[in-house]
Amino acid sequence: MITIIAAAGENNELGKDNDLVWHLPDDFKRFKKLTTGHPMIMGRKTFESFPKPLPGRLHIIITRSKKYTPKVPEGREQDVIVVNSIDAALIKASIDTTPFIIGGGEIYKLGIEVTDRIELTRVHGTFEVDTYFPEFDKTQWELVLKEKHEKDEKHKYAFTYETWERI
């Protein structure tokens, strides 16, 4: 089951200047819990936004560049694969039954047609961004889980976890 995982604002805002525009520690914990042990498909910019590869996950990077060599700490080379298409990424990810597509915006657009599930954290606010989550036809999807998280001392914005499954 291929799963997209994303956090997006009320108008599908994802981020600006290759970074998130909110800080939601509980959402980070959920991301870690869901993705650990599974391959993650991402674009080059998303990979480069991490200080280093995330532990316990294979990073499959999609880039148009045939010469791209990611900066990877010594001993972590086996945690990173570079491919040039979503199809190649899905083939590499097929070693696992639950690969995740983790962004950015262009990779979400490529992956939305082949995805079985969307784990969407809807951040309740509007934001100035340069990257957006793609619109998806909700008539082709069923909302199977909706869990609200209120604003608190650690979270400047309220948000809702939504799990969508393709019908």
Rank of each mutant, 00 (worst) to 15 (best):
L34V: 09
N18T: 11
W22L: 13
W141T: 03
Y132P: 11
N18I: 13
L34S: 12
R57I: 09
L24V: 09
K148P: 08
E113F: 14
F50Q: 09
F28P: 06
T139I: 01
W22H: 12
G9P: 07
G75T: 06
I107P: 06
D26F: 06
A158G: 14
N12R: 15
E106L: 10
A8F: 05
G15E: 02
T36D: 11
T46S: 12
K66W: 07
G111P: 05
G9V: 05
T35N: 07
E135G: 09
R122S: 01
E10S: 14
D152G: 10
L34N: 13
E119N: 06
R44C: 07
G56N: 14
I95K: 00
I95V: 15
R64Q: 13
P39V: 04
T163N: 02
F50A: 05
T126G: 05
L120V: 04
F47R: 00
L90P: 08
G56T: 07
A89E: 10
M40G: 12
A7C: 10
K154T: 14
T160K: 01
E113L: 10
G56W: 07
D17F: 04
H59Q: 11
P55W: 03
K66A: 15
T115Y: 14
E142I: 13
E48N: 09
I167E: 11
T115G: 04
Y157T: 00
N84K: 13
F50H: 12
E147W: 09
P53Q: 13
T139L: 00
E142N: 08
Q140T: 13
N18M: 11
K71M: 02
K109M: 13
L90M: 13
F127R: 00
V82H: 06
I5S: 04
G43R: 07
K109W: 10
G75C: 01
G104L: 04
T46L: 12
Y157Q: 06
T131L: 03
I41T: 02
T97A: 14
E48R: 03
E119R: 05
G37I: 11
L110I: 08
D26Q: 14
H149T: 04
I95C: 07
A89T: 10
V21I: 13
G125K: 00
P25K: 07
D27G: 07
K146C: 07
I101C: 01
V123T: 05
W164M: 05
S49E: 07
A7Y: 08
L54F: 13
V114H: 15
P70W: 03
V21F: 00
H124Q: 01
T3Y: 02
